[in-house]
Each structure stands twice: as C-alpha cells, then as structure tokens.
C-alpha cells in the first residue's frame, strides 16, 4: 500500500501546554484510520494540523499526494445558502474546472440530490454533516480528515454517512477520522491510533488492541481500550 499521508515527529505547544508530543504515523492510499482517545488527548489538534488549520510547533506533515479534505466536527456551512449553493461556492473557491459537474457528483454521492435547493439551516444534523463531509470531498482530495463526523448523528444517519465514506475509500481516498465511538472505529477503520495526553500510544489494527486488553476484556474493544489507557496512565 503506497503512503498517502505521512506524519513525522509532530508536536504542538500552546504556551507551556504540550498538546501533541512526537507523533509519527503513515496512512496508505484507500486506508481508513481511526484516531481514538479520551477528551483532551489531542485528536482534534492532530486532525487540524493534518488539514492545515493549525501549524505544528515541530515536525512535518507530508501531503505530497495532494490537498487534504477537511470536515470539522461543527459543520462549516453557510446556513442561509442551499446545499447546492454551498457546494458550488467551495467548488469555485477550490478552482475546480467544472464546478456544476462536481456539485452534481457530490449531491449524488451524498444522497442529498432531492434537497439540493433547501437552505442548509433547515436540514437535520445528519444531513448537515453529510454536506459538511461532501464539502471536504468536493475537490476530490486523496486524503480526508474528519473530526468526529458522527458525533451528533442517530444510528440511521451514521449508517448512511459510513456508506458514503466507504464508497470514497473504495475509490482510493484515504480517510483519517477521530471518534469517541470505539465500536464505530472497530467496525469501519482499517487501523486504530490511540492518543492520550498528546502522545501516540498505539498504532495497529483493532484486533491487536483487543489482544492487549487480554481475555478479561472479553472481546469488548471499548473495555480493552480503557484497560490499555489505564496501563499507560
């Protein structure tokens, strides 16, 4: 698997606070990587730096494969504009050659074609999140960074969102996403990164984390994660 994203010795300081310490990992083309960890672990900071929202204090993010698409936890949309207008605006700002075609493609992939002309402010949280992710994907980036994409969604909405993302991953898009929902990470991610106190403690498949949790975890990844974090506290 060729590397689409390479993060090397990344660190971020806010004054005296070390939000990230020496983080290094790679993500291959078409790989779905979940970033899990407790609150304040540095998940959002890591994804923000990968997406270019924040600059690292040290280390590098290699985006040579191309731009990184970005979908923040809070949907970054203009609520007075319709779904199609939001998509068209960002398609034009991204400098896409045929913005109308890109809008049509994203409307189809996100399943929002029927609501294209509805103001985003009137959409449900799930549909807003789908538009939010669609905006991150409109320029067809090789890598997509998603910060807790399913945080405010009900199970049905979550399912539809992951179907949408799975289709992109199948086409070779690399997705790095943060989540508190460990079972979601277990179900959809190819690999797990566990962050705590700004340090990368684990970088492997979910099964490896279950093994680390031991038999007492009983195949429960969430319990295995809690045990694992307890060991490293």
């Amino acid at each position: 698997m060729t590397s689409a994203l390479s993060v090397s010795a990344l660190a971020k300081h806010y004054g005296g606070l070390e939000a990230l310490k020496d983080i290094s990992f790679q993500a291959g083309t078409g790989e779905l990587v979940a970033v899990v960890g407790p609150n304040g672990a540095g998940k959002t900071t890591l994804l923000s730096i990968i997406a270019g929202i924040q600059t690292p204090s040290a280390g590098t993010v290699d985006r040579t494969a191309g731009d990184v698409g970005w979908a923040p936890q809070q949907p970054a949309l203009y609520s007075k504009l319709s779904v199609a207008e939001n998509l068209e605006l960002f398609a034009r700002l991204e400098g896409i050659a045929d913005p109308q075609a890109a809008v049509a493609r994203m409307l189809e992939q996100s399943g929002l074609g029927g609501r294209a002309h509805e103001p985003v402010g009137r959409l449900s949280g799930g549909n807003r999140q789908r538009v939010n992710v669609a905006l991150g994907l409109i320029a067809d980036p090789p890598v997509l960074a998603l910060d807790e994409p399913s945080a405010s969604l009900d199970p049905g909405q979550r399912e539809r969102l992951w179907e949408f993302l799975a289709a992109r991953v199948a086409n070779g898009t690399t997705v790095v996403f943060s989540t508190h929902n460990v079972s979601e990470a277990q179900r959809y991610a190819h690999r797990l990164l566990v962050l705590a106190d700004g340090r990368l403690l684990f970088d492997d498949v979910a099964a490896a984390l279950l093994e680390r949790g031991g038999e007492s975890a009983g195949g429960d990844l969430e319990l295995a994660l809690v045990r694992f974090l307890g060991e490293h506290a």
Binding site: S48, G52, R63, W70, P72, A76, Y78, S79, L93
Partner: peptide, 16 residues
C-alpha cells in the same frame, strides 16, 4: 460563527 473560516483560510494551499 458558521465555522467556515478554518475551511477558507487553512494552509496549504488555502482557498483564500
């Protein structure tokens, strides 16, 4: 407030 600022001016390359 619409959280769009980060999407617009992130770098690189940044939309604006």
């Amino acid at each position: 407030e619409e959280s769009a600022l980060a999407r617009l001016i992130r770098s690189p390359p940044g939309l604006i």
